[in-house]
Write a protein that binds this DNA or RNA. Structure first.
Length: 333
DNA sequence: CTATCGCA
DNA sequence: TGCGATAGG
């Protein structure tokens, strides 16, 4: 989803350093969990698991990354998805199918000793099941950070919070957040540095996309950006074959949106999707307040319940505690 | 993904 | 000390 938009938005992303990101970040929790679940795996694709076989990749990802963010003065607020809209049903079913196919291909690749294939298929077989989601919520709570329950799409709720000024920016890999009106989107909020991807070395740095800047540069309105997304496909419609973001941009700017829909998809009504991006279900009942880190709770949750090594967990807890103490002192002076 | 290890 | 390899759960 939203992958196509990259072709017209990628020119407007600005590299940023972690220090420039000091503040409150609304993290698209499902997006982050999926990322961790996909990537934190052994070479044959097996995720990290405790001795009962419960997946723990996401816990490792959240714990170590969040600790780093806190260290950098970034306070994450995790926004979880609620019930998806009816319009998303097809996309959800299609993703389920792909996951199931990938799982079979993963098994096959493992049997045949094809490690890189195994890893790839394992990644796309990743599923956010109820255990992953609930254990993630517990861990975030123990770290003293707020969880916001979106009534529908988490990206929509995060955008709403950013528009209200309750958070400074939204963190997601998906550009779709911009369609919901997110003023500032941050991608690649990771430890910056060199990384090997597909054998090639690339430098990863967080990047910022400002919605007004994108719209000004492309000389379009947000409504037009939404229409471009509808032409190329969103989570709520399949899009039109042969139309990518660049063609979509051209067509929308020349006022040909309606004509294309009439011609290619006569039975399709784009208005409910337009309306969903402009007025999605959101809630005001949330808090962005953090509480003290529950050190003992974290130790028991990670080490006793999920088999993490205290040798790895304790230094992180110490680091967090030290930062917390610093902040308390600062607020005193 | 992030932390840690081992070698130049 | 810095970087590539790999372990983590």
């Amino acid at each position: 989803m939203g992958v196509a938009l990259r072709d017209i938005l990628a020119d407007y992303k600005i590299p940023v350093t972690a220090e420039e990101l000091t503040g409150v970040a609304a993290v698209d929790a499902f997006n982050a969990l999926y990322q961790f679940l996909s990537i934190i795996r052994q070479p044959d694709g097996t995720p990290l698991m405790d001795d009962e076989g419960r997946v723990t990749s996401h816990l490792s990802g959240i714990f170590f990354r969040t600790a780093n963010l806190l260290q950098q003065g970034i306070r994450p607020v995790f926004v979880f998805d609620g019930a998806p809209p009816e319009m998303k049903t097809n996309t959800i079913q299609e993703r389920r199918n792909i996951r199931e196919e990938s799982k079979e291909k993963w098994d096959k690749a493992k049997r045949e000793g094809d490690l890189s294939g195994a890893f790839r298929y394992a990644m796309s077989s990743s599923a956010l099941d109820s255990h992953v989601i609930s254990s993630a919520r517990t861990l975030i709570g123990l770290m003293g950070l707020p969880v916001v329950e979106a009534p529908s799409e988490g990206e929509a709720q995060a955008a709403y919070m950013a528009l209200k000024g309750d958070v400074d920016y939204v963190v997601s890999q998906d550009y779709d957040t911009l369609l919901f009106g997110t003023p500032v989107l941050i991608r690649n909020l990771t430890i910056s540095g060199k990384r090997r991807i597909h054998g090639r070395q690339v430098t990863i740095q967080p990047e910022r996309v400002n919605l007004v800047e994108v719209l000004q540069n492309l000389d379009i309105t947000r409504e037009q950006l939404i229409d471009i997304a509808i032409l190329t496909g969103t989570d709520f419609n399949p899009g039109i074959r042969g139309i990518g973001a660049k063609t979509g941009l051209k067509k929308v700017k020349s006022g040909d949106f309606d004509a294309i829909i009439r011609d290619k998809l006569p039975d399709f009504d784009p208005d409910p999707i337009r309306d969903f991006f402009k007025n999605p279900p959101v809630t005001d009942s949330y808090s962005t307040q953090s509480s003290p880190v529950d050190r003992d709770g974290l130790l028991s949750f990670l080490c006793e319940e999920y088999g993490f090594s205290p040798d790895r967990v304790i230094p992180v807890l110490d680091k967090i505690a030290k930062k917390e103490k610093q902040k308390t002192l600062e607020s005193w002076f």
